[in-house]
């Protein structure tokens, strides 16, 4: 950015504005080159090689990318991840808005409720998954206790491939306190006069929510969708901890949950790189994930023009 090609022939004004911006943006440029661009470039180059991470890398052209097409685990992990994102993002959005509304209730001790709702999102994920497994126990867990008491079926959350991803979605909701805080703040930013005049016009609570709150929340909803998409596509730690069998007196003989239903993309990538020491293939997997992420994010951004409102209309 600093070395601007001569052909561009920046005007004097442009050049001086660049100089002004440099002290501000410069740190990012350095950090980007050293900590992001170089590693990406590196990873991209080795995606065309066979490389264990040591010794010589053997160039193999597009073989890694071709192999992906025939690799059932690639498809499985991609499917699992997209399935998870499709479920977790909308659910997370609804829960975060609901929590944000709840945190906005006008009661004296609301600070305590806010802290309680936010608290699980600061638990170390390592400890949280341990606790979560206990809460999801099909016979003795809290969740099934509630469901069975309400007359529902007893669900084998972590043992039935149809439910495992839903379990992780529920786990993710324990961290909804963070996004909820952002929604809370946004709700608090809506001028109260808007509600007062609507109430005078006889609009009920639901109508006020649909016609005032929701449209004004759309910019935050967009932010949350993108954030949820990115975090969802890169989901790793819960699956990593939930699926580590063997330790303790643990568990089923799964690789990543029953029917590999918790084999998420980044988990597979991580295993490929650090357990199977196949850096070339792992890098190819990473490149594909990057492309998928960008395409999905662009799609959301595209549609956002039609539903995100920056002002009340």
């Amino acid at each position: 950015m600093i070395a601007v090609p001569r052909r561009l022939r920046l005007g004097k004004k442009d050049r001086s504005s660049l100089l002004v911006a440099l002290p501000f943006v410069g740190p990012w440029v350095i950090g980007f080159l050293a900590f992001t661009a170089y590693p990406i470039y590196y990873s991209f180059t080795i995606s065309f090689t066979r490389y264990s991470g040591f010794g010589e890398a053997t160039p193999i052209g597009l073989t890694n990318y071709q192999h992906m097409y025939a690799d059932p685990l690639f498809w499985k992990s991609m499917y699992n991840t997209l399935y998870y994102v499709a479920l977790a993002v909308p659910v997370g959005l609804v829960i975060a808005i609901a929590l944000g509304l709840a945190m906005n209730q006008r009661v004296r001790e609301v600070a305590i409720y806010r802290a309680a709702i936010y608290a699980p999102s600061i638990l170390p994920v390592y400890a949280l998954t341990f606790i979560f497994i206990v809460l999801l126990n099909p016979r003795f867990g809290f969740l099934n206790y509630v469901i069975v008491t309400l007359g529902g079926p007893s669900i084998n959350w972590l043992g039935d491939p149809g439910w495992t991803k839903i379990s992780v979605v529920i786990l993710a909701q324990l961290g909804a306190g963070g996004p909820a805080l952002i929604f809370l703040a946004a709700i608090r930013g809506i001028p109260s006069e808007l509600y007062e005049s609507a109430a005078l016009d006889g609009a009920g609570a639901l109508r006020r929510f649909v016609y005032i709150t929701l449209p004004l929340l759309t910019p935050v909803i967009l932010y949350d969708l993108i954030l949820g998409l990115i975090l969802g596509l890169q989901i790793f730690t819960p699956a990593y901890v939930l699926t580590q069998g063997g330790a303790g007196a643990g568990a089923g003989q799964y690789v990543a949950g029953p029917d590999n239903s918790l084999m998420f993309y980044v988990l597979y990538l991580y295993k490929t790189a650090f357990q199977f020491t196949d850096m070339g293939y792992a890098s190819a997997l990473a490149t594909v994930l990057f492309l998928v992420s960008v395409v999905l994010a662009l799609a959301i951004m595209r549609t956002s023009k039609s539903w995100v409102h920056y002002e009340v209309t």
Binding site: S43, Q234, A273, T287
Partner: peptide, 29 residues
Amino acid sequence: WPGRDLMFAIVMATIFVPFPVLILGLFDV
């Protein structure tokens, strides 16, 4: 400043880089 929006797009794009991709290169750095 010229190129600002493009540069900001790059900032946003870095969000989409999965961390495991960076591990080896970062370690080298």
